[in-house]
Design a protein around this nucleic acid. Structure first.
Lengths: 349, 349
DNA sequence: TTGTAGGCGTTATCAC
DNA sequence: GTGATAACGCCTACAA
């Protein structure tokens, strides 16, 4: 806590008996045309003094901060956390630091966060927060000032979008359920306003349609990505359609709530109700029962976002719609064929 | 993507027909002694041009960045994520931005991350990564350059420590189990090297000792904070001490693995084995069964870290050991009294 | 009320 | 090889 004042390049130079420009060359600039001996003198002087380069000053003259901004969800949602941690690590591997801003509940402060990032002159911004999907002010800022990459739709476009095929995800999950022999398949969705939700819902409908199954509205219940929301959506579903034998859930986090609500309603998973979800968060396999889910490459998405952004920062032209990352069904224990002759139990309701 | 060049205060001034210093006054400096009319002219000029103050330049002269650095764990661990998100939000509420660095697996890069933060001249650093508990290089940097606050022990001290009473946590959990009538109580711990682990273990032993119960080494199995580690520790425990009727787990994340392993071994929770854990992560109540756990105020810890750090940055003297945050037992369904006459089942093993 | 001078720590350019 | 000179965008005096 001795709050030692930072020593500048000049003090190092003085101690080494050279001009500060020379010191600068050996301490930072790559093209060192300095005699080995003076270089050494400068280096030891720097070490003695505990010199730390001042990136702020460097940024000022070079007009680049080697920093990227990350706007993320509240990150109670593990899926987002996965992506953002991976993004940060990847950025650092490429010599960049990351300035984060987590949206408050509701996400109304998205524009404030982005503005701050811009004022700090980040070289680029990654948006990883479904909440700002409809925020036109954020979109505006993202387009106008720095290169940006988004993990969700940006109103008005103009910002490259990375992610996976959500419709395919919904289809894959539902197909699996259909393949097992289910016909009464409900779904617990994300918020309807979210594009991910609608895409996954489309995938779900695609699958049902292909199998000539109906999709009555009773089979769809809206959640909010939280376990709690998943649980209440499930209760609603059971109430409206007690005959349901399978549920496609739009996220693993909600699936926890679904499992919990099912358990409390006395329905066994997978015997009474089969559950398939999306994401494959790290502990999906440790739920009871282990979750059958469609793996979404979250970490990889974060990394790809960084790569695209770095290319964009470097002045390269990057596609606004790079190829979607592949998803994959991970079969575990939460989905099984429906009970043959046994009609759904009516008790516990 | 039009990469508009940033406009500087000079261009704004030119457009408003004043000197750039005057423009500076109204755009930033608080003490505006400028006529309302010119001020207005400057403001509109700024808006027209899309002026964004350059924090970098400001930082250079003011020698403060209004940025704090956060060194965090890989954050697959939700507990850490909770604290760090809360910290970031709180920092922002106080006008500070947050530069994060997530340790890679193993945490060997702690010093690199801190060095980067220092070179970026963060005003202070929060360390939230158990992995660096023994890293003396990190400790050195933390002491030497900027105010810092840590959520875990720092070798050599000199850095204020925030957190909760881990020993009390262990005691509370174990006492609950004892109160329910259990006598064969095992524990799945964090890594032994970690101080948290040892403290919680001490709490566990305190409780057992007070109840005149033995603590054979067989009852202790080491985990690694992950569900997977929790699961294997549990299997080990069941193998060594099949008669166990209760388990105290050192984290909710591991508890998921414990629950899972117990389920697979055919032991019902809580009837056959009672489980009490620590943390109370957001979805603890949605596990099957809902987890009885000792709540650790993770978010609050993050916030307190920010408060302390901000005070320290302001030059205030802060205590190296501020009061520990209180923990609280949350009773849910994963712990019940042991079966009376029924000896532990031997099948499935 | 407004403008001028000087400097924050660095890098870049170009003499010496 | 080395060192002047200038600039990056802003702020804090202080002078007009």
């Amino acid at each position: 806590m001795a709050q030692r004042k930072y020593v500048s390049i000049k003090e190092v130079a003085a101690r080494a008996g050279v001009s500060f420009q020379t010191a600068g060359k050996v301490l930072n600039g790559g093209d060192v045309r300095v005699s080995a001996e003076t270089a050494q003198r400068i280096l030891t002087a720097a070490k003695d003094l505990g010199y730390r380069p001042n990136t702020i000053a460097r940024s000022l003259v070079q007009r680049t901060t080697a920093t990227i901004g990350l706007v993320a969800s509240d990150a109670t949602d593990i899926a987002i956390a996965q992506a953002s941690v991976a993004a940060e690590q990847e950025a650092r591997r490429h010599g960049h630091s990351v300035l984060v801003g987590h949206l408050a509940a509701g996400g109304a402060d998205g524009a404030d966060i982005v503005r701050t990032l811009i004022e700090r002159r980040v070289d680029g911004i990654i948006a990883a927060a479904p909440e700002i999907e409809e925020d036109t002010r954020v979109a505006e800022l993202l387009r106008q000032y720095v290169p940006a990459v988004s993990l969700q739709a940006v109103p008005g476009g103009g910002v490259p979008l990375v992610g996976s095929n959500h419709r395919e995800t919904g289809r894959l999950a539902t197909d699996h359920l259909i393949g097992l022999g289910h016909t009464a398949i409900g779904t617990v969705t994300g918020p309807f306003r979210r594009r991910v939700t609608r895409s996954r819902l489309h995938g779900y409908e695609d699958a049902l349609r292909n199998a000539n199954l109906e999709t009555p509205e009773d089979l769809v219940a809206e959640g909010d990505w939280t376990p709690k929301g998943g649980a209440s959506a499930t209760r609603l579903l059971l109430e409206r359609s007690p005959g349901i034998t399978a549920i496609f859930v739009h996220s693993d986090m909600m699936a926890m709530g679904v499992l919990s609500a099912l358990f409390q309603a006395g329905r066994c998973v997978p015997q009474d109700v089969a559950v398939v979800s999306c994401d494959d968060i790290p502990f999906a396999e440790y739920l009871t029962p282990p979750l059958t889910t469609v793996r979404v490459p979250l970490a990889e998405t974060g990394r790809q976002a960084v790569h695209l952004l770095l290319r964009s920062i470097a002045g390269e032209q990057v596609p606004e719609r790079p190829p979607l990352l592949p998803v994959e069904l991970i079969v575990r224990a939460s989905a099984a064929p429906p009970r043959k002759a046994a009609p759904p139990r009516k008790d516990n309701e």
